[in-house]
Design a protein around this nucleic acid. Structure first.
Length: 742
DNA sequence: GGCGTAAGACTTTTT
DNA sequence: GTCTTACGCC
């Protein structure tokens, strides 16, 4: 029995309302906290952990699952500042990272050793493509993507290969089950797990090793779960097993913010929580501290249209606030330009760029905004898109490092055996693969074992080069050489750096910079984590999300998807592209439960706003290079007009919204400080380059001479220019390295 | 076996 | 409009 004393010492440090306080203090078994948007969910969760530790439960006995690493990091540091001591042993992190930790220690029970590799979705897709080829399945009948989706669904429900095999009906399902079987076999052989495996393998591990399960049941005296509405079946099973003995589960969530159904999340987990955990005590946090009344009413009205939800109504003591605006624009370009202008006017007042967010349904929508912001010289941060660790050159580097930790990772071997090119192609690979298969070795193990001459004289040079590189790197690794030194050595030995250096195209310079950035990141990481190993670094890298590295910058406007925005708040929010087919997404038209999820997504977006909310839709939108017509989202159309002010801005040509302009002009006159963009504070935050290029512009390059810009593509750091030089050669340059002379 | 060009697909959201 | 893949030439 746990003794709870010092009841109030910790609580006194936190300002909690009475429901929050009751939720924190309750320790009588299963507990479910419905925490509406902005009702202080994180505060309660943090207080709960601090309270448990203060009551005598060692941090190492607490298991707390959050939705992002960022949330985990923040929560850990808040708990530490509350109780005043470090909580090193605390198990806090995403489900994926917590499971990875368990699997690294216990994987032997399911034939995985502690050095297994984590495959991201790209790797997963590559491996499935390989499987399709080996099973001779035409990728026009089943695409790798489809197979990946279905396999992921099986795994999310913790269905084993055998179970799927048994229930597969019809040709299609049987084919998928064949793919699943072969895919799992390859993963096992290569000692690799995909994201779903981290969860499902943990379930399988517990399922087949009751002693081990009991050990963890005793270890974790308290289980806390954030964002419970977004848990999938595998996560649910893990939780259920872990608290089967004591029932000490504390789940926090909001069914109205369940937006990951497409990833296997079961909203039923939260809705039927009380059926699964008997004698559950339910708390409902309904007082919202974030948004003003107009916004909250708007949000309540939108979500009220959903059938499948628990009854609740957010309320606030905050002021009425400005009316919610719904704007109609002519097309997405006008939408972006108009919003850029509105933001420009806002930042002339007391609003900073960092207080503002533009939220959209799909990543593709960010482009027009980037363009408009560049034009208006508004600093911005784009969250998501192609992440650093997905870039080809970074994945090459990581593949080398992965192989040093796990030599059985054939997928990584495939990636790099001829990178940089050393004359080894498909034929060469087959030679080595034959040998490896005969000797039951992985590709790299085979290479290290084989007499290279036996693989054919044509490939001897390439293979012996690769072999000696790895022999050297493995030596360094065994000597405990710092990771950045190993990577640096790899870059030198393989000639990767030389090739990039020689190439001198502006694109290669970009790649070079990325590689250097990786070296720096590793060096910093090693310094901060002196007792961690290369394998730890690789794991952290595999499990980072886009939002994990996001930091609010004072002056930079935030651009992100609605999914990314969950859990965040901004003074001003622009919800853009509210058209039927975008939100709700066309692909979810068929199913009412999916429509409800889309409505929740909109609800999540709305409830991010504190003071000002503008929703917008356009008549026409550029997609795939053509203009497509659009109608306002059904979610807007079903709303009584009393909840918002409607503005048709599609009719205004040229200068947009003169009334806003006039007001802003008046305000700046009063305050006597008109800021030109270049004097904007924190302008150095503006990573997006200050130089602007136009099509047709004449430029002079230090080595290529004079030329004319033919086309511009991409934005920010990725902006590329196609320039026709006077020597008649067309060259593609990275704008940020172009360094033109005047 | 490497490199360039052309056709095709593609956009939901992400640990 | 952009990215990936396939194919043909060197």
């Amino acid at each position: 029995m746990i003794q709870f004393k010092n009841r109030f010492s910790i609580l006194d440090k936190m300002v909690l309302n009475s429901v929050q306080r009751d939720a924190v203090l309750y320790t009588g078994g299963p507990e479910l906290v419905f925490a509406g948007a902005g009702t202080g969910k994180t505060r309660v969760l943090t207080a709960k952990i601090a309270y448990l530790i203060d009551s005598g439960i060692a941090p190492g006995h607490i298991f707390a699952a959050t939705f992002t690493n960022k949330a985990a990091r923040e929560m850990r540091s808040r708990v530490e500042s509350l109780i005043g001591i470090p909580v090193n042993g605390l198990w806090i992190g995403t489900f994926h990272s917590l499971c990875a930790r368990i699997l690294r220690m216990e994987g032997r029970a399911i034939s995985y050793d502690s050095a297994f590799t984590i495959y991201d979705s790209d790797d997963q897709l590559s491996l499935i493509k390989k499987v399709l080829k080996s099973l001779d399945i035409d990728d026009r009948s089943i695409t790798a993507r489809q197979a990946a989706g279905l396999i992921s669904r099986y795994k999310n429900r913790c269905m084993t290969v055998e179970e799927v095999e048994k229930m597969a009906k019809g040709f299609y399902e049987q084919e998928i089950s064949r793919i699943y079987k072969q895919y799992q076999k390859l993963l096992r052989e290569q000692q690799a797990m995909d994201f779903d495996d981290l969860l499902s393998n943990t379930v399988f591990l517990f399922r087949h090793n009751s002693e081990l399960l009991q050990r963890y049941q005793r270890l974790f005296k308290y289980v806390l779960v954030d964002e419970y509405q977004d848990t999938n079946t595998a996560q649910f099973l893990i939780i259920k097993e872990l608290c089967a003995l004591h029932g000490n589960i504390f789940a926090v969530g909001d069914d109205d913010q369940s937006i990951y159904g497409w990833r296997g999340a079961q909203i039923d987990n939260i809705l039927y929580f009380e059926n699964v955990f008997p004698n559950t005590r339910v708390f409902k946090l309904e007082q919202n501290y974030r948004s003003c009344r107009t916004i909250l009413n708007f949000a309540n009205a939108v979500i009220a249209d959903n059938e499948k939800r628990t009854q609740k109504q957010l309320w606030t003591e905050r002021n009425e606030g400005e009316a919610v605006q719904v704007c109609r624009y002519r097309d997405d370009r006008q939408e972006a330009l108009a919003i850029a202008e509105k933001i420009t006017n806002s930042v002339k007042g007391k609003i900073r760029g960092g207080d503002v967010a533009v939220l959209f349904r799909t990543n593709a929508q960010s482009r027009v905004f980037e363009e408009a912001f560049r034009r208006s010289r508004i600093p911005y941060i784009l969250v998501g898109g192609i992440s650093f660790y997905e870039r080809a050159e970074i994945k090459d580097c990581l593949a080398y490092l992965r192989l040093l930790v796990n030599p059985r990772d054939d997928l990584s071997f495939d990636r790099i055996y001829n990178v940089p090119a050393r004359g080894l192609g498909e034929k060469a690979r087959e030679q080595l693969a034959d040998y490896a298969k005969k000797s039951s070795l992985s590709m790299l193990q085979g290479l290290l074992n084989v007499d290279v001459a036996a693989l054919g004289s044509r490939y001897q040079k390439g293979f012996s080069e690769l072999k000696s590189i790895f022999e050297l790197l493995i030596d360094l690794c065994n000597n405990g050489t710092p990771v950045e030194k190993i990577l640096n050595e790899m870059l030198q030995l393989t000639g990767y750096l030389d090739i990039l250096n020689k190439e001198k195209t502006e694109e290669s310079l970009g790649r070079l910079e990325n590689v250097n950035e990786l070296l720096n990141a590793i060096a910093i990481w090693s310094r901060d984590n002196p007792d961690k190993k290369l394998s730890d670094f690789l794991e952290e890298v595999s499990l980072v999300s886009d939002i994990d590295s996001w930091e609010k910058k004072e002056n930079a406007v935030n651009l992100m998807t609605l999914h990314c925005a969950k859990g965040l708040e901004f003074k001003h929010v622009y919800l853009v592209g509210l058209e039927d087919g975008i939100i709700p997404s066309k692909q979810n038209f068929d199913d009412e439960s999916k429509i409800e999820e889309e409505r929740r997504l909109l609800y999540v977006g709305i409830t991010r706003a504190m003071e000002k909310l503008e929703c917008s839709h356009v008549d026409q939108r550029w997609r795939f290079g053509v203009l497509l017509p659009g109608v306002p989202s059904r979610f807007l159309q079903s709303l009584p007009k009393s909840y918002f002010d409607y503005k048709d801005e599609s009719i205004s040509f040229g200068q947009i919204n003169p009334s806003v302009e006039k007001k802003a002009a008046m305000r700046s006159k009063v305050s006597q400080q008109v800021q030109s963009p270049s004097e904007m504070p924190g302008y150095e935050d503006f990573s997006q380059e200050t130089v602007e290029f136009r099509m047709g512009q004449y430029v002079r390059h230090k080595s290529y001479g004079r030329g004319r810009i033919l086309s511009i593509s991409g934005f920010g750091d990725d902006m590329k220019l196609t320039v026709l030089f006077n020597d008649g050669v067309r060259r593609k340059l990275m704008a940020k390295f172009a360094n033109f002379e005047n």
